[in-house]
């Protein structure tokens, strides 16, 4: 008689281990734990992709020598004037006797990160920067890792203005870098407050003729971009980021022209600047 091949009634085949709920769940939890531990280990040697090192010549050129058509086309791009005129302050001059542009900021600061692009663009029209280095704002503040430069270690030469930057801290706000002088502290206390500014950094004093604090445009627009990408965008006057950087730079340029007696003429008599100057106030 052939042996029955049917399963005996009542017999239960045990579930394979890999099919059991507990195995599936345990396996998934183990994979997640391993992944998170791996991330923690990798993060120790990872700086978040923050660029450092000397700024490339092409990027510096793109920022300091923007196209005249882009500058003119953007104008003020419907951005409000960020500058407050100082009507009775004594002139601020640098060690070379020229009008001084004072910048006080910090490497961690995302608003400083944004403002530096415009300030470098404006000052680039009056002189030459050297030794600019890439940087980014703090990874733990708002707008983390905003791509920018640092003025620490850089130099600037110009026939028309003296530029004095003070980066007070590194990307770590608890690590001091440069200390404002007593005179700079006094200017901060006197003018980096109401009714002149809303206070805080970045603080820019243009020869005690105009002051401003904060970023002239939204730092969010720089988020996720490389320096090279930002430099390429500066060719397009319709790009929102370009319009922010350039409009802000045009205001700063016009203010600097007010202190240099409209020199150089090629800059101060150019269409966007000559249109903006009457709007600055304080004349």
């Amino acid at each position: 008689m052939a042996r029955s091949r049917t399963r005996k009634r009542g017999a239960v085949r045990p579930t394979p281990v890999w099919q059991r709920s507990s195995t599936l769940i345990g396996g998934a939890v183990a994979i997640v734990i391993i992944a998170v531990v791996a991330f923690l280990l990798v993060s120790k040697g990872h700086n978040g992709g923050v660029p450092t090192g000397p700024a490339s010549a092409s990027v510096v050129k793109a920022v300091t020598q923007p196209s005249a058509s882009v500058l003119s086309s953007v104008g003020t791009a419907s951005y409000e004037n960020p500058l407050t005129p100082l009507t009775s302050a004594p002139a601020l001059t640098g060690s070379g006797g020229k009008p001084e542009v004072l910048y006080v900021g910090a490497e961690y600061c995302p608003y400083c990160a944004a403002e530096r692009w415009s300030l470098i663009m404006a000052l680039g029209r009056f002189g030459t920067f050297s030794n600019l280095h890439y940087s980014a704002s703090s990874s733990s503040d708002v707008y983390p890792n905003t791509p920018t430069f640092t003025f620490h270690g850089s130099s600037y030469s110009s026939r028309y203005v003296d530029f004095v930057p003070v980066e007070t801290t590194t990307r770590d706000p608890n690590q001091a870098l440069e200390t404002p002088t007593a005179q700079q502290q006094q200017l901060l206390q006197q003018y980096d407050t109401q009714p002149y500014t809303s206070g805080g950094i970045p603080f820019i004093d243009i020869a005690n003729r105009y002051v401003t604090a904060g970023a002239g445009y939204d730092p969010q627009m720089l988020s996720g971009l490389t320096h090279e990408q930002i430099a390429r965008k500066l060719r397009n006057p319709n790009d929102p980021l370009t319009r922010g950087i350039v409009a802000n730079a045009n205001y700063l340029t016009a203010a600097i022209c007010e202190t240099t007696h409209d020199r150089p003429a090629s800059v101060c008599q150019s269409p966007p600047v000559s249109r903006i100057q009457p709007k600055l106030g304080g004349r």
């Binding site: 998934a28 939890v29 923690l40 978040g48 990874s139 983390p144």
Partner: peptide, 27 residues
């Protein structure tokens, strides 16, 4: 963890809920 070196409490809550949903579905 790796790129920002920071975590967000609310985001972590959502991530935990996602994991729990997956584990429940797996179970």
């Amino acid at each position: 963890i790796v790129l920002l070196h920071r975590i967000c409490e609310w985001c972590t809550a959502v991530h935990a809920l996602t994991l729990l949903v997956f584990l429940t579905a797996l179970g």
